[in-house]
């Protein structure tokens, strides 16, 4: 059985949840938890699982507060998470997936200290775009990587650390489009 954990603090549909829902379509037996759920409930499900999949956003170059807080809780109960398989998906709003590498190193340190079997990662850039079904035509490469990663999870195989960057747009154009979208949000909020 799989325990899928959506680490996003957002109450509405999050990008992390979108990625987990995509993966869950390839799995038979799983439970999806949001980080706002009771930690004990998540731990109880982990005890019955052999594989954990965590998806979280990048906040201040590291796992977001709620994810970090759950990791601290699980570490304090490490006898119950030891030897489980562990996959992670980290997404950020910047175009380049490399921004997630520092957070990944923190996750790997947690795995080592908790005696968890680190199985691989998917590091997603432009998560705000990749995580929205309406943009799926321009995110073919990222979604292909998500498919590859899902297959590894389904077969409980080791995956390499896959870095996904929005390669259809260059940095300059990406900044321009993102800034336009921020202006729209600011204008909407002024009304």
């Amino acid at each position: 059985m799989y325990t899928l954990i959506d680490g996003s603090p957002k109450k509405q549909q999050s990008n992390s949840k979108y990625f987990l829902e995509y993966i869950s379509k390839h799995l038979d037996e799983y439970h999806i938890y949001n980080i706002n759920n009771n930690y004990k409930l998540i731990l109880d499900n982990i005890k019955q699982s052999d594989t954990i999949v965590l998806a979280h956003p990048l906040y201040v170059d590291s796992p977001n507060y709620s994810t970090l807080s759950l990791l601290e809780y699980l570490y304090n109960n490490k006898d119950r998470v030891a030897n489980k398989n562990f996959y992670v998906i980290i997404n950020c709003g910047f175009r380049e997936g490399e921004h997630n590498l520092t957070a990944l190193s923190i996750i790997k340190n947690w795995c080592t200290k908790s005696n968890v079997n680190y199985m691989g990662s998917l590091l997603i850039g432009a998560g705000e775009i990749v995580g929205k079904p309406k943009y799926k035509l321009i995110c073919k490469k990222a979604l292909n990587n998500l498919k590859l990663f899902s297959n590894c999870i389904k077969n409980k195989e080791l995956s390499k650390d896959i870095i996904t960057t929005m390669d259809l747009l260059n940095n300059k154009i990406y900044c321009k489009l993102a800034n336009k979208s921020w202006n729209k949000k600011i204008k909407r909020n002024k009304k």
Partner: peptide, 11 residues
Amino acid sequence: KFGCFSSSVKK
């Protein structure tokens, strides 16, 4: 905390 800020500081 695993090479990161504590969750309290991170908050």
